[in-house]
Amino acid sequence: MATISQDNHGLRLAVRYLVLVLVAVIFIFPLVFMVVSSLKPDQQLLSDTGSLRAFLPVGDIGLSNYTHAFQRAPVGLFVFNSVFVTGLTVLICLLVCSLAAFAFVFLEWRGRAVVLSIILATLIVPFETIAIPLLLLVSKLPWIGFSGIEHGWLNTYRVQILPWAADGLTIFLFVQYFKDLPRELIEASRVEGATWLQIYLKVVMPLAGPVLATAAILKFLVMYNQYLWPLIVVQDEAYRPVMVGLQYFFQLNTAWGEIMAYLSLITIPVLAFYLVLQRAFIASIASTGVKG
């Protein structure tokens, strides 16, 4: 790089940014449309959809869609429920899936191949197709609560969390990543007499920053957008998540502006989570330098 003249460098940089910006335009427009539309009254919103006006905050702009959205549905409650359920699921999922992946990659044990194959095969099962059997199952499952053993998991947070707490994709993600880590590190620690748990905690996980962040983001998205499952297992409004809440806005006369306002609001947590993790992701790489 040192041989390239300063001018040339500047030009290259400009071209790079130009490409980045052009690509950005292609990807950002749904968000712009969503936010801009949330500021418009329905009639104008709908007549603007055919032109570039759809992406410009022009005309009769205001926040009334937001006030109406809050009147129509307990938006704060829904967002809380979703963030709570999603957050907890992501945490549990990262833990149990990374543990399992650790066992699949670094340990040798009887049954490893079979168990891994079964778990990978579950990647193929679309959730829609097992929803009803799963519903019948959770409606009977026992749970130890404050008042002893209860039966039936409907109308709870746990019914929204536990069935999703482990999944083949996340395990697969960890497995493929762990495979790239140097095995000598593990073996060396073993020779030094470290327990497996110590190796997991002190050797592997500190190197797993990027994959933890990636898995967390992907899992967060899946959980935050849950619709069918909470719909059938949660009848009590107190436990309802955001995507079921979206249905509040599809009335006979659809309130498009309020829908956009609601969507803009519920997108904030996902976006925030993504951006925070991006930072952590970069930081973790900088500190570990990863493998050689």
Binding site: L95, V96, C97, L99, A100, F102, A103, F104, L107, E108, W109, R110, G111, R112, V115, I119, A166, I171, W196, Y200
Partner: peptide, 8 residues
């Protein structure tokens, strides 16, 4: 091995 894999 089983201990680590069993929760998931």
């Amino acid at each position: 091995g089983w201990g680590f894999a069993i929760p998931a």
